[in-house]
Amino acid sequence: MKLLIRLAAAIVLLCGGLPAAAQDWPSVPVPADAAGYWVTEHMLYNGLNMRASRFEIAQPLAKVEAFYRDAWGARMARTPWRNKTILGRAEGRHYITVELTPAGNATRGQIGVMEIPREAPRTPPGSGFPMPSQTKVSEDIVYLDTPQRTRTLNMENAFSPLQNAQFYSRTMKARGYVPERGSTPCTAASDQCISFYSRHDAKLMLSFKRVASGSNLVAVQSR
């Protein structure tokens, strides 16, 4: 799903200049007999409105691709990626991507619909969320179709898991959060640490995983 979202986001930003209406989603065809479900009916991905769903069908990838070529015709774009095929099409104020992955004699599909914004988001990913200096945010996702507003951030910096855990311990306590049960101890030798915090109006999970360049950070906050 990350590949589909990133590709769609890049295309949408290149297609800027059109008006947007997030509630007016286009319908996306799926092959007959496909079993599908929603991932999210509305989310913000790095500030862009999007919805996502998945399906699976007992047909080879080539046949599923032919279905979309028949449905979309020459306006369909095709991008091969490793063992996947990504199909795309602009429709009005939206851009649609369908990521197809072979699964034996079946095919798995991931559908993303992203509105084309009038302009690029004015606030960068990660805005308003505390983070150590020089931290880079690759993904900032807010789910808008859940009872609680859930925000997920994927980040990376040059610090160790312990240094990140210590930063958030100080920072979140100063913001009124208290540590919760389930957190894992973090030492200088730890390759991965997980911290849980809560406040009267929010819950927060933080994961710090050592990588070659420092740490990968994942934050999940619900309000």
Rank of each mutant, 00 (worst) to 15 (best):
M1I: 08
M1F: 11
I5K: 12
R6W: 03
L7T: 13
A8V: 11
A10R: 14
C15Y: 01
G16H: 08
G16Y: 01
P19W: 08
A21G: 06
W25T: 13
S27I: 01
V28W: 02
V30I: 15
V30G: 04
P31E: 03
P31V: 03
A32I: 07
W38H: 07
T40W: 03
T40Y: 10
N46R: 09
G47R: 06
G47F: 07
R54P: 00
F55Y: 13
F55Q: 08
E56K: 11
I57P: 01
L61G: 00
A62S: 12
E65M: 12
F67R: 06
F67Q: 07
Y68V: 08
D70F: 05
A71E: 14
M76D: 01
W81L: 13
N83H: 12
K84S: 11
A90P: 01
G92Q: 07
G92C: 02
I96A: 02
T97E: 05
V98S: 03
M114G: 03
P117G: 08
P117I: 06
E119F: 08
R122H: 10
S127D: 13
M131F: 08
P132D: 07
P132Q: 03
K136Y: 09
S138W: 10
S138T: 13
S138C: 00
E139Q: 10
L153Q: 08
S160C: 05
N164Y: 04
Q166W: 00
S169Y: 05
R170L: 11
T171C: 10
K173P: 00
K173M: 13
R175L: 15
G176V: 06
Y177W: 03
Y177M: 07
Y177G: 04
S183M: 09
A188G: 05
S190C: 07
Q192L: 07
Q192E: 15
C193K: 04
I194V: 15
S195T: 07
S195Q: 14
F196Y: 15
S198A: 15
S198I: 01
R199L: 04
H200D: 13
L204W: 04
S207I: 02
K209Q: 09
R210Q: 10
R210C: 01
L217M: 12
A219H: 05
Q221A: 14
R223D: 13
